[in-house]
Amino acid sequence: KKRTSIEVSVKGALESHFLKCPKPSAQEITSLADSLQLEKEVVRVWFCNRRQKEKR
């Protein structure tokens, strides 16, 4: 599967949402994915990776 490159504006939106809620529910992920026109899986993986980055 190809890597999904996420645009800067979209990254900003994800980042601000992450600061409010680092662990969104499935429903939040779905609505966020719909509003940003991304697949749910892409958003879910982005949050997983972002939480891991926070640990480092």
Rank of each mutant, 00 (worst) to 15 (best):
T30F: 05
S5W: 06
E41K: 04
K23W: 06
I6W: 06
D34S: 11
I29S: 01
R3L: 13
L14H: 03
V43S: 00
T30P: 01
L36Q: 00
V10S: 10
S16L: 08
Q52Y: 06
C21P: 00
C48H: 10
K11I: 14
V8K: 12
W46I: 01
K11C: 07
K23C: 13
R44E: 13
S31T: 13
K23P: 01
R50P: 00
K23I: 10
T4C: 06
A33D: 03
V43R: 00
C21A: 06
S25N: 08
L38H: 02
S16F: 06
Q27D: 10
V43M: 00
K40E: 14
K23E: 14
V43I: 08
P22L: 01
K53I: 11
L14T: 00
K23R: 11
H17C: 06
V45K: 11
C21G: 04
S25E: 04
K20Y: 05
Q52V: 09
K40H: 15
S25P: 03
Q52N: 12
Q52M: 11
K40W: 08
E28M: 04
S35A: 10
S31I: 14
L38K: 01
I29K: 00
P24A: 02
K2V: 09
P24W: 02
L32Y: 02
V42R: 05
P22C: 07
Q52E: 15
S16H: 07
E7T: 15
R50Y: 02
R3N: 15
P22H: 08
A13T: 11
S35V: 09
E28F: 04
I6N: 10
K23T: 14
E15G: 01
A13M: 13
E41I: 01
N49E: 14
R3F: 12
Q27A: 09
R50E: 05
F18V: 00
E15K: 02
N49Q: 12
L19D: 09
P24N: 01
Q27R: 12
L36S: 01
V10P: 04
K40F: 12
V42P: 01
R44P: 02
S35L: 11
N49F: 04
V42C: 12
A13H: 08
E7K: 10
K55P: 05
G12P: 09
K20M: 06
V45Q: 14
S9W: 13
R44G: 08
K20T: 08
K55M: 11
W46M: 01
I6M: 11
R3Q: 08
E54W: 03
Q27S: 10
C21V: 05
L38D: 00
S9T: 14
F18S: 02
L14Q: 02
V45Y: 09
F18K: 01
K20R: 07
L38T: 07
E41D: 10
K1M: 07
L38P: 00
S25R: 04
A26F: 06
K55E: 14
S16A: 15
Q37E: 08
E39T: 08
Q37T: 06
K55L: 10
F47T: 00
R51Q: 08
K53V: 04
F18P: 00
E28D: 06
L19A: 11
K11L: 13
I6H: 07
T4L: 08
K1E: 08
I29W: 02
S9A: 12
S31Q: 14
A13V: 14
R44I: 06
F18Q: 00
A13C: 11
L38E: 03
R56S: 08
P24I: 01
G12M: 14
E39M: 00
T30R: 09
K53L: 08
K55Q: 07
A33C: 05
A26Q: 13
F47P: 00
A33I: 00
Q27L: 08
V8C: 06
D34T: 14
L38W: 02
I29C: 03
C21E: 11
L14M: 04
L32I: 08
R3P: 09
A13S: 08
Q52P: 00
P22V: 03
K1Q: 06
S35D: 14
V8Q: 14
K11V: 13
Q27G: 09
H17D: 02
V45T: 12
I6K: 15
G12W: 09
S16E: 12
G12Q: 11
R51P: 02
Q52F: 10
V43C: 04
E15P: 00
S35N: 09
K11Q: 14
W46P: 00
P24T: 00
D34H: 15
K1Y: 05
C48M: 11
R56N: 13
R3G: 14
Q27F: 06
D34Q: 15
S5L: 12
Q37H: 06
G12C: 13
Q52A: 13
E28C: 06
S9R: 15
E7H: 13
T4N: 12
I6E: 10
E54H: 05
R50H: 03
P22R: 05
